[in-house]
Structures are given as C-alpha cells and as structure tokens.
Design a binder for these strands. Sequence first.
DNA 1: CGCAGACTTGAAAATACTCAATAAATGTGG
DNA 2: CCACATTTATTGAGTATTTTCAAGTCTGCG
Lengths: 250, 250
Amino acid sequence: MTSPVILRLRHHGKLGDGAADALLSCRKRNRLVEPGQCLMRQAEEMNALFWIESGWAMRHRNLANGRRQILNLLLPGDICDLQGLIHTRADHSVTAMTPVMLCEVDAGRFLDLLHNDGQLAASLLWSVVQEEGILREHIVRIGRRSARIRLAHLLLELVRRQALGGGPSDGLIEIALTREVMADCLGLTPVHISRTLSELRRDGLVTLEPQGRLRISDIDALARHADYDTRYLHLARPDHVLDRAGGAQA
Amino acid sequence: MTSPVILRLRHHGKLGDGAADALLSCRKRNRLVEPGQCLMRQAEEMNALFWIESGWAMRHRNLANGRRQILNLLLPGDICDLQGLIHTRADHSVTAMTPVMLCEVDAGRFLDLLHNDGQLAASLLWSVVQEEGILREHIVRIGRRSARIRLAHLLLELVRRQALGGGPSDGLIEIALTREVMADCLGLTPVHISRTLSELRRDGLVTLEPQGRLRISDIDALARHADYDTRYLHLARPDHVLDRAGGAQA
DNA sequence: CGCAGACTTGAAAATACTCAATAAATGTGG
DNA sequence: CCACATTTATTGAGTATTTTCAAGTCTGCG
C-alpha cells in the first residue's frame, strides 16, 4: 500500500517509482496526534516538515475577540509546510480534527532530493501551486458568494480533495464535520450553516448519513447548481467536474 | 537606483550585492502595460515570469454572474509568478490598475540561479511565503471582520507593502483606489465602502488627499484600533506595527 | 437510561445590499 | 479658461441576508 502523498502528487503528472521511493526515503518517523491537539502553533518557530498520512486537520487563526477563521483543511496526502524550509514564525495554527498520523520528513535529505530530481521538484512545486489555488478559491467563495453556494463549494472541494489522497470519491465526506467547523471555514455562524444545510437537504442535493457524515447525492448536479469548476486545483487530467468551454469568466 | 524587487527581498534578510546583481542579470526586457490591460488572463497558459518595476496591478477572478473578487494587489517589487515555472493554466487574471512597467525574466537563467545561489533561493522562497501569508490574512479579514475593520486592514497592509518596495511609508497610499476596487477586494459593495470610509474619515483615522488618494493619519493609532498585526508579512526585522507580546491568539 | 455535545428552530436585531437620485471630480474640446 | 460629458462618490430609503439570543431536540455513548 502506497502513501497518500504519492497518490496526490501523481495527479500532477508523471511521477516515476524512483522519484516516489526517493521521496518516501526522506521519512524520519511517524507521529500520532489526537483530535484537538496542535501540529503547529501560531507564532511558534516552524521547524518540522511533514505530511499527513491519515486523518484531517485544519489551519486556522484565532482572533483577539474569540472568533476563529479556518484557512484551509488538511487532508491525507497534504504537505505541511514547505515554507518550514525557511526560518520564520507561523502566522497561524494547525490543529488535528481527527486522530492524525503525521509523517515527519528529514529536511536535509529532502533538500538534496529537490536539487537532484527535477521531476519530483516540479511535483512538489505543483502541490504548492495547488495549495495557493485553494486559498484563492476560498477568498472568492467567502467574498462573493451566498451562504448556500459557499457551503456547496466547500463540500464539493472536500469530496474532490479527499479523492486525490485515495479517499472516497462517491460524494461521501469521510469524516463528520460539525456545523461550527463549516461556519469557521466559510465566515458564517453555525446557526446559519444549519439552516443552509437544511435547505440543501430539502432540495435533495445533500444527505445526512450515519455518524453525522454528509453525502453529496449527485456531484455533477450540485457542481452545476453551484457554478463549481475545479480548474483551480490544477489537476493534470482535465477532469473538471464541469467542463464547459471557457467557463465563467472574461 | 536599485530595483524595487531587490529592496523588497532585502526585507527577508541578508542579500548580498552579488546575489542582487545575479538576479538583475536575469532581466530579459521591460514591457509597459496600460491601465485596464491584462498581464495574464484566466485559463491561459502561464509562461512569462516577471516582476513589477513600477505601477499597481490586481489579481482577480470574474464570476459568471458578473461579480468580481480581487484576490490581491500587486505592488512594485512583487514577483508574478514563480508558479509560472510549472506548466499549468492560470486560475485567475492579472490586470494593470495604473501604467505598469513589467520586467520579464529569462526563466532558464533564473532556474540556474535558484540552483546555485542558496541565499537568493531562500529570499525568493520567502517572497512566496509572504504572498501566501497575505492570502491567508485576506481570508481572515473577509471571513471574520466587520466592514470597518476590513477596510482599515486593507489600507494598513497597502501602506506597509508599498514601503517594502521603496514607496512612501508616511501613510499616504500612492495611487487613487476607487471605491469599487476596495469593494471587490473586501467582498463588499462600493456604496458600503463609501459609507464606511466616511466613518473612518469622520473619526479622523483617514483623510482624503488631492487626486482621490487616501492617507492614514496615524498608522499606529489605526493599527491599534483595528487589531492589525504585521506578523503575517514575515518581515525580518520584527517591526510589527503592534508589538504586543503574544498578540491576539491561542 | 441519562448525560453531554451537537443540532434545529423561532423571533428580533444588526449588518450590508439595492435602487435611485444628487453631487463631486476628472477629462475634453472649443 | 470655460462648458460639457463622463466617471466616480455620496446620501437616503427600503430590502435582503445573516447574526444573536434563547429554548428545545436529537444522537451517540457510557
């Protein structure tokens, strides 16, 4: 069984077994983090370089007034943080949402690899580009879309991204998300998420499964409904959920 | 007179004259872009690698429903786009807001440099980290802050960033921003920006100067008022506008 | 069974939006 | 330098969306 990191990087394009093995050979040790525990704390020195083997985590900022904004969710196969390579302080925290198995990387060996394997370096650069794309999409979502569309977009993104790391691709979100988590992602309140989700359920777009997990009933239908386009994920195979020529914009 | 790129990168830390000259030696040619013209178009192949010598531009997405979200503003000294190094399609557009002088870079020579000059590579990586920090801060701003604080934050960031590239650092924003631009940055309407800005002016925090330019009357006062902390810019010298120990969060 | 945490629902309030009319500012040509 | 056209900004009134507060319900788990 291969690591979700490799699965994810293969969505960029060709990544030979040699490059994959080389990357895996940088592993230093695994570490298990319990839900609610920090993988990285705001204002702390960043040193560790790691990826997520299993479990979900979140990047977030806590504000002086007690509010919280979730910047991004981290799924199996996501790398956190290439930025750790330069000496700087974290401007946000990362907290486990489920039990998270981390794979810590030996920075020295990793840097050697970057130098010597151009294909691998390109794939890792791609993962940075994808992460930036995800951040930008999040800005658009929060800045210019209604609560209903925001929520639909978030769910669609999560379903897509979990598939990239080897998770389910049938519309089921593999972990239970609380209303509060969705609210803090989307800049809304849990109460309003509750109402909005009820609407989506009423309209048959989303269903609630055992253990509080959500399922998108028909991914294509919801994507069409919500003007969702996966181009920002920069996947190699052009399998946009929606592949309308030209899409939305000027 | 040195390029704003060099000025900006020096805010990361030591950058010797040798490294600076090496970077400048990658210049291929300059190109002038008129206001309203695109430097890069959504869904187009990215090939060019360039930085901004003078003038302001914006990264933005145009939505199917005619709305626009500005993702980030580009100021003199900003690099656009290191991501161009990998073969992918832009997920957003970049448009000039003023006459913009671009400096196009020879990608081959640039990559050589990255390989051979570790100090320069670190500085460029820093600029990527800073850009990501700016995107994240923008998410927090839009997601969890009131219109008034959002606007104050945006102005504070712009004043700070223009100083990094050699622009004024006295609170005057060097170009006139329309209400519509500010609105599209912050996920608000121009009308509401107008009202909010009037409030800030009424309270003596901001003044309107000739040619529609804005000035922050007292940067520290506004920063305190708006819970603004520059840590996310990852500047080497810890000259946070606010240097309260520990700051806001857990 | 019963508790704790998460969810739902209602009503009232706050925030931001829309539409529309007026006022400044900017640029153009005579 | 002035009149005019054009764009941008301000202001008011009414509306829509989202929040807040609070009470009640569901669910999973020991």
